[in-house]
Design a protein around this nucleic acid. Structure first.
Lengths: 206, 206
DNA sequence: AATTTGAGCGTACAACTGTGCGCCAATTTA
DNA sequence: TAAATTGGCGCACAGTTGTACGCTCAAATT
């Protein structure tokens, strides 16, 4: 076609990007990975339906790519939160605020993860599960090394916290700013419950 | 048709049941409400596609009916748990066990609720949200009246607990018996964290 | 300069979807 | 007994889907 002075690989990458972006933009609205139509993605990406196959074997392969990208975003979130915490500030409060901000900015990615976590496709569920597992593990390691908690307890605590945060996150996405603020307040308090509880069971015994 | 000595209403109810059951059985596998096809439901129910409209205006109307039925099951669960608790036994342990048993027996209903809770359709999400809200409220009332917790704290505690239970429930459904057992153990411990934490913040004051 | 490669396209097809329309026949009502 | 109601059906239609096939033509390779 008329893309004169542009090397092949470059152009291919560009189109691939267009496909991925198109998919993400569609997930904005009323679609999940499982009912994303190849033709619609192609339409939004500005390519012919059949051209899709030059980049992905399946719609499922595209789906997994999206999950990967979203997982990457999640790890960025983790890093961002940690650096903020190390710069001083309450661990829980900072984490929740970071998560909330992030959920607004990267709503597409977060939405994707939340939906597919309990979604239809076992493959997608597994992929998301892995990402969240990873997330939990990092949190667990962090708290284990920054508190006196045993690995066992740190794990339980981290898992519970992540579950709570993601559950609240699901509501936060479609909420207004005020609702989100309130939700954050409640979440912080609830996370404190867990933190206190975990310390109680591990700290001074009984 | 050949349903001779059967009054009209009876037969209509029967067909309606067949449709609902067909839908539930389809949700068993790889479908959510949002990609349930009218024709497929009709096929499984053993009726012509167009006959569907004699019972539901939409596929969405059927969906809301299913959510309602599942919500009903949820309230049964609540009652069952309470009666077991009142018969003596740890609150948390009994509740979790009841929930796990229930999730296995009524896996269709629970699965439906879990999926649509973070699903695609705002209407379904809202419907499920209402059911869970109801569930949370009952738990909150129960703990408020059985412990010294303030309404405020009881609410927070109940919300956190329900979030945790449902999140774990999502995993429990597709798990093996052994995995489920382990999951239950962890969940119990995590709920204890929350309970202890809530008491700490409300009980003897800081 | 000649050849190979490969991204992108258009056409085509079979499978599926939701739903409008009119008919039938059994139950209910008059 | 005659008339009205209504659950269920088949047919038909337009729209959407995934994907196979073969072509083009610029870029890369020889």
């Amino acid at each position: 076609m008329g893309f004169s002075n542009m090397r092949r690989q470059e152009q291919k990458q560009k189109t691939r990007r267009a496909i991925i972006d198109a998919a993400f933009s569609l997930l904005d609205e009323q679609r999940s990975l499982s009912n994303l139509s190849l033709r619609e993605v192609a339409r939004v990406a500005g390519i012919a339906p059949t051209s899709f196959y030059r980049h992905f074997k399946d719609i499922d392969e595209l789906g997994l790519t999206l999950v990967d990208e979203a997982g990457l975003a999640l790890r960025q979130l983790m890093r961002q939160a940690r650096s903020r915490i190390d710069a001083g500030g309450s661990v829980i409060k900072t984490s929740v605020n970071t998560f909330m901000e992030f959920a607004v900015e990267n709503s597409n990615e977060i939405r994707l993860l939340l939906r597919e976590y309990s979604g239809i496709s076992p493959a997608f569920r597994a992929a998301v599960s892995r990402e969240i597992q990873h997330f939990t593990q990092e949190l667990s390691d962090y708290t284990a090394s920054h508190t006196g908690l045993s690995r066992q307890l740190a794990n339980l605590q981290a898992e519970a916290m992540v579950r709570l945060v993601f559950s609240a996150g699901a509501e936060a996405i479609d909420a207004t700013q005020v609702q989100r603020e309130l939700l954050g307040q409640r979440l912080i308090q609830q996370l404190k419950f867990i933190a206190k509880g975990a310390v109680h069971y591990g700290g001074s015994n009984r």
